[in-house]
Design a protein around this nucleic acid. Structure first.
Lengths: 173, 173
DNA sequence: AAACAACTGTTGCGAATCGCAACCATTGTA
DNA sequence: TACAATGGTTGCGATTCGCAACAGTTGTTT
């Protein structure tokens, strides 16, 4: 199962020097594990992003940023729409929105037509924060992927976006 | 900020019909948010994978699967090496390994040379589980990305793997 | 030899996330 | 009027994760 010849793995790809120093000669056992790499990159990306947003009231949240930006660019959007866009359930978004309401980032307005639903609107403070977050995120993308060729970055964006849209479509019959 | 012409967005890509039905005409506000798409894909991927592993003692864990496969293919590997490969800290792996020990999936052997470190070895049950997990993961990759062109899948694997290796190298100076 | 730093693994603690189930209010329909 | 469907909220439980702290081991420095 394990290649016993350290210098070069069976796949012909030089194993990372750092991993070798860990006693891990190759990652052949994970070679097919696309999910492993996606998860790892996602993890590192999230940690890095959280660090940059640390004191900004939207840190540590996968959904908080998306909610903020969506409300900012889609005045009157409803919580359930955000839930579907972020692939989360309504309670999760409800808590995020509550948090934002408490911090004065958004406002909730119920329309006379649909009194069960609530339209969300950004406040000045929220709009300002959204702009800041947008800048940080763009900068992070630049920094984090600094060593990744631009074509690869574009490819990654294109592919993940297309997968995301497929997921959304599969979820809304 | 928001394009008001539904049929086609400024980017030339048709907005998803499903998102439109949510009142989200476009995702321009997220266009640069590579992290958003990576996170979303990661999330959907993890949920789907967890569902397939539900009753297999390695479910719900990002690190469990990797730990199992690494121990299976690298006899004698140490917990700290797994920690570095999975980008997690030692306590996290310690708990995962404890869980595996309790379930008889691995064994811990301390070498006479390095009595502070512990070498991990797979058991028969663990080896069997590893084989099962490998099959499931491969199948999942096939199913989950069924609608994604093969070139894109290969590209995604290549790019995320290269990013992963860069991260590892940056972490071990 | 003794003191010290570096490393490994473990446990405690606390924070945060997330999904499911259940609940109330509203809307539209039978 | 009764009933299903939808939207939002709260409670509960399970899980994950990181940091701090600790004990044991190894090697180096003094």
């Amino acid at each position: 199962m394990t290649t016993d010849t350290p210098p070069s793995s069976a796949s012909g790809v030089r194993p990372s020097e750092s991993l070798k120093s860990l006693g891990i000669e190759d990652l052949d056992c994970l070679e097919d594990l696309l999910s492993f790499y996606v998860r790892s990159v996602n993890y590192a990306l999230s940690v890095d992003l959280d660090a940059r947003l640390e004191s900004l009231e939207v840190a540590r949240g996968t959904g908080k940023i998306t909610a903020l930006l969506l409300i900012d660019s889609h005045p009157g959007i409803r919580p359930s729409a955000i839930a579907q866009a972020t692939l989360r359930d309504r309670p999760s978004i409800s808590r995020i929105v509550s948090h934002m309401l408490k911090n004065g980032l958004v406002e909730k307005v119920e329309s006379p037509n649909e009194r069960r639903a609530s339209g969300l609107y950004i406040t000045d403070a929220g709009h300002e924060l959204a702009a800041t977050v947008r800048d940080i995120v763009k900068q992070q993308s630049k920094d984090f992927f600094a060593d990744v060729p631009k074509e690869d970055r574009d490819e990654l964006l294109r592919i993940t976006k297309s997968i995301y849209k497929k997921i959304i479509e599969a979820r809304t019959p």
